[in-house]
Nucleic acid binder design. Structure first.
Lengths: 231, 231
DNA sequence: ATATGCATCTCGCAG
DNA sequence: CTGCGAGGTGCATAT
C-alpha cells in the first residue's frame, strides 16, 4: 500500500469520461495495482478510481504538461477493458509506503438472510397456527423467501425485504400469480414483510390483497435470546 | 484529512454488526469526521467506514484492552442512527495530516441520457422507416424515453436502459397500458432497448409482445462520427 | 425533505 | 464463470 498526498488533476476514460481539475487529493495505490483518488469529503466512494487488475506506469510530462506545471504523469490502465486513468502530478506533498499484508477479513451478521431465518423460526408471529413449509421455495421465476401455511392449512407466500418498495410487491405478485396456477397449492395468499414499508408499496400491496407486516428485527432476535444486546 | 497506518481491530454495530481482527490497515479521517478503514486489496469499498455526519473521540483503553495490547480506542458515532464504529489501535505505524481544501468537483459524460439522444438520432437502426416523434414523451405516470412511429405509422414506445432488468420491462408495460388507452395513439407497440438485457427480462418482455433490442453504444456513436475515438 | 432510479456501482452466492 | 439480487449501498434528480 502506498499513500500519496499530491496536487494533481485526474482524467478517466472508460465507460464514461470524467475530468478532475487540479487540487490537493489523497492517492491510494493498493498492492494489486488498483488506485483510489479521494478528496476530503463525500463518503467512502472515491472521486475516481481504477479497479484491479490494472497496472500503474509513471512517465515524464511532455512539453505542454511541463509548462502547465506537472512534474509526473501516472497512467493506470486495465488491459482488458481499455479503461484508462491518467493522474497528472503537480506536486507531491507527502508519501507513505507500508506492506499491510493480507487482511484476515470481516465477519458480518444481521442482513436479510438473517431476517428470513428469524421469521421462518418464529413464523407464528404472523398469526396463531402458522407453520413454515420451506425457506427459499423454488419456482420457475426464482425462489419465494418463505412458503408457509396458516391455521386453516392455506398456503402463504412471504416476501421479505429490509426496505419494502414497489419492486418487492411486484416480485411477490409475480410469485403469487405463478403459485396460484398450481392446483396443489392454490389458493395462495401473500404476505409482504419488511423492516420498513414505503407508503406507495403498502398501498399497492393492499390493493392486491397482499397483507403487509412490519418486522421488528430486535424483537424477533429477542425471541431467541432475551439477553442478546449490542454492547 | 488525516491518514493513519496502524495495527488495529475494528468493530461496527448499526444496521448490522461486523468485526475485523487485528491487522495492519489504512485509516482515513476526512475533514467532515467520516472515517474509512482500508485494506491492501478489494476495490474502492472500505472494509468498514462511517458516513458523515459523525464524530470521532479518542479514549484510553480499559484494563482488558490494555492487556490485549491496545494503546488507544477510537470511537466514531453517528448521533442520529446510533451507528457506532470502534477502532482499537495496537500500534500507529505512520500518520500524515494535510488540509486538502474543498474539491472543485468532477465533470462526467456518457450516461443513459446520451444513449437516449443517440438512439433518437439514429432511430432508423430499429428498422427502415422509423421516425422519432418525441424524446421524454410525457404521460400521467412519467415520461416515455422515446415515442416513435414505424414505417406504417404505428406508434412505438421505447424504454432505454443501460442494463435491462425486469423492473424496466414492468415500467414499459405500465406506459404501454396507459398509451393504449389513448385512441389517438393506439395501438402502441413496445421496444425495450438496452446495452445488455437480462434473460429473465427478455423472457418477460417477449411474453408480453415487447421487442427487445440490444444497443451498441460505440456503433451508435460511430454513426455520428466514424473518427471518434478515446485517445 | 422525500422518493425514485442510476452506478466506472461492489460484493457474495447459486447455478 | 456468469447471472442475479442485496447493499451500513452512494448519488443526482424530480417531486
Amino acid at each position: 500500500m502506498r499513500v500519496v498526498i499530491a496536487k494533481c488533476s485526474v482524467d478517466y476514460a472508460g465507460r464514461l469520461t470524467a475530468h478532475l481539475p487540479t487540487a490537493d487529493r489523497v492517492l491510494m495505490i493498493k498492492a494489486d495495482g488498483s488506485v483510489l483518488v479521494h478528496s476530503d469529503g463525500g463518503s467512502y466512494k472515491p472521486l475516481n478510481w481504477m479497479t484491479p487488475p490494472c497496472t500503474l506506469s509513471v512517465s515524464e510530462p511532455d512539453e505542454d504538461q511541463r509548462a502547465a506545471g506537472f512534474t509526473e504523469i501516472w497512467t493506470v490502465t486495465q488491459a482488458k477493458t481499455d479503461d484508462r486513468l491518467v493522474i497528472s502530478i503537480a506536486e507531491v506533498i507527502s508519501e507513505t509506503v507500508h506492506d499491510l499484508g493480507v487482511d484476515p477479513g470481516l465477519v458480518k451478521d444481521g442482513v436479510e438472510a438473517h431476517l428470513q431465518e428469524l421469521l421462518a423460526e418464529h413464523i407464528e408471529s404472523l398469526g396463531t397456527g402458522y407453520q413454515t413449509v420451506r425457506r427459499e421455495y423454488m419456482t420457475a421465476i426464482g425462489p419465494v423467501d418463505i412458503l408457509a401455511k396458516d391455521a386453516l392449512g392455506t398456503s402463504v407466500a412471504i416476501e421479505i425485504k429490509r426496505r419494502g418498495g414497489i419492486d418487492g410487491v411486484e416480485q411477490l405478485t409475480r410469485y403469487l400469480e405463478l403459485l396460484n396456477r398450481d392446483p396443489l397449492l392454490s389458493p395462495v395468499s401473500g404476505v409482504f414483510a419488511a423492516q420498513e414499508i414505503k407508503p406507495q408499496a403498502r398501498a399497492l400491496a393492499e390493493d392486491r390483497g397482499i397483507r403487509c407486516v412490519v418486522l421488528d428485527y430486535d424483537a424477533l432476535r429477542g425471541m431467541d435470546d432475551p439477553e442478546t444486546r449490542l454492547f
